[in-house]
Design a protein around this nucleic acid. Structure first.
Lengths: 203, 203
DNA sequence: ATTTGTGAACAGTTTCACAGCG
DNA sequence: CGCTGTGAAACTGTTCACAAAT
């Protein structure tokens, strides 16, 4: 089984999201093209790489397809622990955000350099001063970090996160983070997103 | 001058971000490789497509390179007006976010279906009930929308935004939005980002 | 001397068109 | 018989290697 190309995987992530709210029992590549905008040929090539043969003449069985996607995307094993680094307005907005309810991702800790904030804020998981970052991440086996700090703190913290073995960083800052290739970065800052749109990109 | 490939443009957006905080006067393709992780060959090919010849033997002149990037990315003309749709916790966090200060993007309006919220919240730009969406967007010539509503409202609002001519949507919801190809979408939800990282993607 | 810019080779991705399957 | 799955072709993007530039 050959490795799945990167552009395929990005679409498969979105396909999993799409199926999460799809109510019919089956779905055709043509229908996916109408919803998501990728050509039916691309959809069939993407799905065929999952090596499930869960559909012909009636389209794919949604349940089987979604299971195969979850398996490919590592969403069917145990929970993935995450932490929020930076508890300013953006970090606080994510504190009690329900988006991760019923997903394999769980926020297990929050960090901020202001002890004032870590003591005053209330959340369902413990908040710690940033000095504890390395200890807690290793102890709790945290795999992903959500970076919502001020721009000047972003690169130093990214470096610390990478060196304690974090697999991926969701980067809410507009900075380009410099980390070893073992740590993946997903850039989701408002400014970066707007610049991307302004360049005529996005689907 | 041929069209610039999509993967190149995505890197050029990040290169612009990188240069925004770069303090030396010149930068080499080799240095960019060290920081951003793209190969020096890819960097040279990307930059050569800008048709500025702003460097040899000492690397690129940072000022010239950044100006060319801004021009390519449409960041040097007039201001781009944006609106926030959905003033829940995430929308409120973006209300007085300083990230767009000193950029060509300006938030010109906020919308929420709860009149309670649009009347109580304070911000530097006017807040309106969602019923006013189409009117205000046309009146104010708003080009981009930041979508921070509850998941069940996401698709209907995306369709309304697309049909009143919005060029791009920054999608903070985990839904796959179905819009005509004239409206671009940039997906920045926490869940989508975490799934992408879990699939082993990102830089 | 060092680094860009670029043809040419290579690698990856998408599209086409249709055989094969339920 | 409509729809998937897939070779083969077409296209897009990356790497190599070196001539040109300063």
């Amino acid at each position: 089984m050959k490795a799945i190309p990167e552009p395929s995987k990005r679409r498969l992530v979105l396909l999993e999201r799409l199926l999460a709210t799809y109510t019919e029992k089956t779905i055709t590549s043509q229908r996916i093209e109408e919803i998501a905008g990728w050509s039916a040929a691309v959809v069939r090539r993407d799905v065929s790489q999952l090596d499930i043969h869960c559909g012909a003449s009636n389209g794919y069985k949604v349940a089987d397809l979604r299971n195969a996607l979850k398996s490919l995307l590592n969403l069917d094993g145990e929970q993935h622990k995450c932490c929020i680094v930076g508890l300013g307005r953006m970090g606080q907005a994510l504190l009690d955000n329900t988006e991760l309810y019923d997903t394999p991702f769980k926020i297990a800790a929050g960090f901020d350099s202001s002890v004032n904030r870590t003591e005053i804020l209330r959340s369902t998981f413990p908040l710690h001063p940033t000095t504890m970052l390395e200890n807690i991440i290793k102890e709790e086996k945290i795999q992903y970090a959500i970076l919502t700090v001020e721009t000047q703190e972003a690169q130093p913290l990214a470096a610390r996160l990478a060196s304690c073995g974090i697999l991926g960083i969701v980067n809410y800052t507009p900075c380009v983070l410099s980390v070893p290739p073992t740590t993946k970065v997903e850039n989701v800052s408002l400014l970066t997103a707007l610049e991307t749109l302004s360049a005529g990109l996005g689907d």
